[in-house]
Design a protein around this nucleic acid. Structure first.
Length: 880
RNA sequence: GGGCGAUUAGCUCAGUUGGGAGAGCGCCUGCCUUACAAGCAGGAUGUCGGGGGUUCAAGUCCCUCAUCGCCCACCA
């Protein structure tokens, strides 16, 4: 092994692609054949519409961290990749593309259009897959799925028909949310409400008998053409006696009744409401209660249809509104309009204003399934991280409404329902029927509509494993372990997966649900195309490498917290990877020509025990962090160990041995370094995947790949608390002396005498003495005295630790004023601490209520502060 | 209108059962010390949003106010 194997500069481009290929070629991403208790994640399938943004990046990085951690811990680890056909979103993109070429989808025809869409799908799929691979996602590509592939389609038909057979799928004529631009119905959740500054229009409806008129107020005057009643609150004294009378609907020749309904608020508007059952959800309910006629006045593109007087036909809603207002004015019925801001529904895909629209649609009855899902949560079969999202889940399940699943689109799973052209029979079937089950006619037409995208994704955790087939994968890997996703799709997706799974698999699809934060820019704004503040994961990989991306995102993933980043943020990970690279290079350089001793045969010195103890403690904290999805703590444990303990202390200390002439000691020291590095690489692998693999394979005495190596576990064996305690004191000593040197600006190369006085009770006396040369090296002195005799402090400045004091002789360079000022500051601090501690100890209540160990601690603190205060006063006198 | 969350160093944020305030970046000082200047050593900086309460003890628990954010909701 030669150091030339490691280039001087860390350059991730040199090896990341090669390493990923190595993993692929060696089947490293497949779950191992043997072994129980598999760890399974199915990817939240990205939409094939787009490319991955940083939100996806975060999501997949965290999944990868989990998968890699559990894979190394010996569990068969499976991460199923896949993509979503994303019905409306994809169809919109393809339509836009065609429109740019001057082609409308209807000109093309359904078949050709779908063909075109598959092409677009393939293009985007290739990009997405490449992106996931670039960031190192260790998914099992041999099991990749797509929501529209044959297996998923089979699952979809099975579920549709299954629910139909259970009476949970039904077709009905209902008021749905209609997107005139997409030309399809939307589910309630797909409507986004936005605050719009609109107007409230006031005008009169005259009584039929000409005896007067009633003032109504509305935000949507054009819908009056579909009015079938005027409603007032029966309690409203202003209108008492009017209920049951009739008004003439202006601009039309219709006569409609005045009805009483407690829904109408007496405080709002005029207290009289026009009722349009076919175009407003509330009016719909009122219409049902009062058995009113429902007049649909719109076409599916939001123009007015033939149910309105001829002059309004074909007008768009906006224009119809103007026309209606003009005509009301002309008839002298118009009163006024007032500013009024209110919530208006918009399509979540194209942002068009959504119209309540009467049409025939397919629905899933949700209440029963929601109850089961709620029940599973109450029994703690599901846990959200962080738990606060359980409120959201609960609330949604409690207020759930039936799910409109039909979409008037071409891209998606076609509804498995056929109609007989001859007798009109409706046939709901898993496979296309040959002939009508009623009349035997072979002239059948399939329902034109497709299913909501989520109707395939809600089956994802089991359809991807082969359901409805009884596959080995399904048996072995279902239910899955953890779902990692964003909070924006708890309703759309998470909740529905739980319901589908309980319904068809009779158990929850996953136990843990980790909800990631949202990725935002440094100003806290959502990343969006229009703001141009989005970050492309691939650009980050290009600039800093995938490991920098992965580490940074993991390190910043505090549970329940959004992540604010810009390009600069990734320097954090980049620097860390660089540090790992260089520390490894240092070790590799010193491996050359040395005899590497197996760890079991290395004779451990105190400092070796110390680093083993630190490693052990760090692993322990990493273990407990990942257990509860505290990714930031998980990453921080590795970061601090590697940088602060291993590099800053252990490697620095190793230089004494490695640069000595003691060949045996050199062998011993490098063997320890290699061993600890190997453990550290394993430790860091979940988030520094490429670089650790690259280095691991260059280490002496390693075989195979790191990705499938065994993760280090915390254990009792590497537990050396006394050594750790002593070493901490030694660090205090060295830092104290360095601080003095720095404060008095003693040039680094200048060696000055140091005397360390250790009190008789000092616990680490032996430890200090045995590490004398190390101390001397790290504080740069050639005259170090360790003594238990009180030394003279003449010409020195001092640094105090617990049980010892270090005197740095600096007569030649001392700045008395500076030193005195510093001591005064410390004197004040000590006085304050003493006051605080004494206060507690004089407090009878404290003494009687606080636990003994706390009281003891306070006492020893007081002693410590008092002693220090005395010393400080003494120094001030001496110097001043 | 209902619900949830946030407010800690200049910035972004940790702080897990209440027990002597932390990290990264930035800033200041000194160093190109034979792994790393993407580095090393050292340093400064906080009435933990305001007010009240519980407690021997509050960044941590309770109440209240303020500011910001998110989600849900049919007031025409």
């Amino acid at each position: 092994m030669s150091s030339s194997d490691m280039p001087k500069a860390y350059n991730p481009k040199d090896f990341e692609d090669r390493i990923y290929k190595y993993w692929m070629d060696n089947g490293c991403f497949k779950p191992k054949e043997e072994g129980k208790d598999p760890f399974v994640i199915v990817i939240p399938p990205p939409n094939v519409t787009g490319v991955l943004h940083m939100g996806h990046g975060l999501n997949n990085i965290l999944q990868d961290v989990l998968i890699r951690y559990h894979r190394m811990n010996g569990r068969p680890a499976l991460w199923v990749p896949g993509t979503d056909h994303a019905g409306i979103a994809t169809q919109n993109i393809v339509e836009k593309k065609l429109r740019a070429k001057g082609i409308e989808r209807h000109e093309l025809g359904r078949e050709k259009f779908v063909e075109e869409t598959w092409k677009v799908k393939e293009e985007h799929h290739a990009i997405i897959k490449k992106q996931l691979q670039k960031i190192g996602s260790s998914c099992d590509w041999s099991r990749e799925r797509f929501t529209l592939d044959e297996g998923c389609s089979k699952a979809v038909r099975e579920v549709f028909v299954g629910l139909y057979e259970r009476g949970l799928v039904y077709k009905g004529n209902y008021l749905v949310n209609w997107c005139p631009s997409c030309g399809t119905a939307l589910a309630d959740d797909e409507v986004e409400h936005q605050e719009i500054d609109g107007k409230m229009y006031h005008y009169y409806y005259p009584f039929e008998d000409g005896s007067g008129k009633i003032e109504i107020a509305t935000t949507r005057p054009e819908t009056m053409l579909g009015d079938t009643a005027v409603a007032v609150n029966p309690e409203d004294e202003r209108y008492s006696g009017l209920i049951g009378r009739k008004v003439r609907l202006p601009l039309t020749d219709r006569i409609i009744p005045i009805i009483g309904d407690s829904y109408v608020s007496m405080e709002f508007g005029t207290g009289a409401v026009k009722i349009t059952p076919a175009h407003d959800p509330n009016d719909w309910d009122i219409g049902n209660r009062h058995n009113l006629e429902k007049i649909n006045i719109l076409n599916d593109n939001a123009t007015l249809n033939d149910n309105v007087p001829e002059k309004y036909r074909g007008l768009r809603v906006k224009d119809a509104r103007k026309a209606v207002i003009e005509d009301l004015k002309a008839e002298g019925l118009y009163i006024k309009d007032v500013e009024h801001s209110h919530q208006v529904g918009h399509c979540y895909r194209c942002n068009t204003v959504v119209e309540p629209y009467l049409s025939k649609q397919w629905f899933v009855s949700m209440k029963g399934m929601a109850e089961k899902a709620l029940n599973a949560w109450e029994k703690e079969e599901l846990i959200f991280y962080p738990r606060k999202w359980e409120n959201t889940y609960k609330h949604w399940m409690n207020t759930i409404r039936d799910w409109c699943i039909s979409r008037q689109l071409w891209w998606g799973h076609r509804i498995p329902v056929w109609y007989c052209d001859d007798c009109g029979e409706m046939i709901v079937a898993r496979e296309a029927p040959e002939v009508c089950t009623k009349c035997g006619s072979s002239s059948l037409t399939q329902d034109n509509d497709v299913l909501d995208t989520w109707f395939s994704s809600w089956l994802w955790p089991f359809s991807t494993l082969g359901w409805p087939g009884k596959t080995d994968d399904l048996k072995r890997f279902f239910p899955t372990s953890t779902l990692v996703t964003g909070y924006d799709i708890i309703f759309f997706w998470v909740s529905r997966m739980i319901m589908a799974s309980l319904e068809f698999m009779e158990e929850v699809p996953f136990k843990d649900i980790y909800i990631t934060g949202l990725v935002r820019d440094k100003q806290g704004r959502k990343m969006s195309k229009s703001l141009g503040n989005g970050l492309d994961p691939l650009e980050i990989v290009d600039e800093y490498g995938a490991d920098a991306l992965k580490f940074t995102m993991t390190f910043l993933s505090a549970q329940g917290q959004d992540i604010l980043i810009d390009t600069e943020s990734f320097k954090l990970g980049s620097k860390f990877a660089n540090k790992v690279w260089n520390a490894s290079r240092y070790i590799m350089m010193n491996v050359e020509g040395r005899n590497i001793i197996p760890f079991e045969k290395i004779e451990l010195k105190e400092i070796d025990k110390w680093i083993l103890h630190r490693l052990n403690e760090s692993i322990k904290s990493a273990e407990s962090a990942i257990e509860v999805y505290r990714f930031n703590d998980f990453a921080q444990a590795g970061y601090e160990f590697f940088w602060n303990d291993f590099c800053d202390w252990y490697i620095e200390a190793s230089k004494i041995s490695l640069y000595s002439s003691d060949e045996k000691e050199k062998d011993r020291a490098i063997s320890m370094l290699v061993y600890v590095l190997e453990q550290a690489l394993k430790f860091l692998h979940p988030y520094l995947s490429f670089i650790t693999e690259e280095i691991y394979q260059k280490l002496p005495q390693t075989e195979g790949s790191l990705i499938t190596a065994e993760y280090p576990k915390s254990c009792g064996q590497n537990n050396y608390p006394e050594t750790d305690e002593s070493f901490t004191l030694l660090q205090d000593l060295i830092r104290g002396i360095r601080t003095l040197r720095s404060e008095f600006t003693i040039p680094p190369e200048k060696k000055i005498p140091v005397t360390v006085f250790m009190e008789s009770s000092f616990k680490a006396e032996k430890f200090f003495i045995s590490h004398k040369s190390l101390i001397a090296q790290l504080v740069n002195t050639d005259n170090l005295v360790l003594t238990t005799e009180k030394p003279s402090i003449d010409g020195s400045v001092a640094s105090a630790g617990t049980g010892f004091e270090a005197y740095v002789f600096i007569r030649d360079v001392i700045d008395i004023e500076k030193e005195v000022a510093k001591l005064r500051k410390e004197q004040q601090k000590m006085a304050q601490m003493i006051k605080q501690t004494e206060g507690k100890l004089k407090n009878g209540k404290f003494l009687s209520n606080a636990p003994d160990d706390v009281i003891e601690k306070e006492k020893s603190k007081l002693a410590e502060f008092t002693e220090r205060a005395e010393k400080v006063s003494f120094y001030i006198n001496e110097l001043g």
